[in-house]
């Protein structure tokens, strides 16, 4: 029978079982790496480095996981913190320089496919809206879980999701028809 995330975490806590932690990494690597790829606007190497850092940090601080939220929510929070710390280190916290980012985008280079348009539209959202949309709409977290992961008030998450969705819908209006 396959162990739940909580069961695997218990094994890591009690026996320092790295195989159990490896299973947790295997289960969540895709969603964590995917989220970070979106947050870093498609910088795969950076996203994977941050994902690696997030998992190592999760292992070192696993005693801080009290099971109040889902393991994935806790993991998203660590991954998001890694991303923000890195962005701060690089002094290019995404979201501050949105106008410059948009100006740099050449519409001719955008792939005509919906997926690429969607990714492009996502990358144009400010960080706070993008992260809320990614967690709630793409990764299926509830507003409450996203608020925990992003460490912001519930109302702010709702507003960010709403605004982000509206902008995406506006950008992708032609595809929705």
């Amino acid at each position: 029978m396959e162990l739940t995330d909580a069961g695997l975490v218990a094994r890591v806590l009690v026996d320092e079982d790295q195989h159990a932690f490896g299973e947790l990494v295997r289960r969540h690597q895709s969603s964590v790496r995917g989220l970070l790829r979106q947050l870093t606007r498609g910088d795969i190497a950076l996203a994977d480095d941050l994902a690696q850092e997030a998992f190592v940090r999760a292992y070192k601080n696993i005693r801080g996981f009290r099971g109040e939220a889902k393991f994935s929510t806790w993991l998203y929070r660590i991954a998001y913190n890694c991303f923000r710390e890195d962005a701060r280190r690089r002094k290019e916290l995404v979201g501050i320089n949105e106008e410059q980012w948009q100006a740099e985008q050449d519409p001719q280079t955008v792939d005509p496919g919906l997926r690429h348009d969607l990714m492009h539209a996502l990358s144009l959202l400010p960080l706070h809206e993008r992260s809320a949309v990614l967690l709630c709409c793409q990764n299926g977290l509830s507003h409450d879980e996203a608020a925990r992961a992003l460490d912001i008030p519930l109302g702010t998450v709702k507003t960010n999701v709403l605004r982000g969705r509206e902008k995406l819908k506006k950008t992708l209006a032609v595809w929705a028809q």
Partner: peptide, 20 residues
């Protein structure tokens, strides 16, 4: 739905081993 479809499964490709 489109957002979920746009996030395909990322193959492990040794990622877990690197973390371990």
């Amino acid at each position: 739905r489109k957002l979920q479809e746009a996030a395909p499964y990322i193959e492990d490709d040794g990622f877990t081993a690197r973390v371990l």
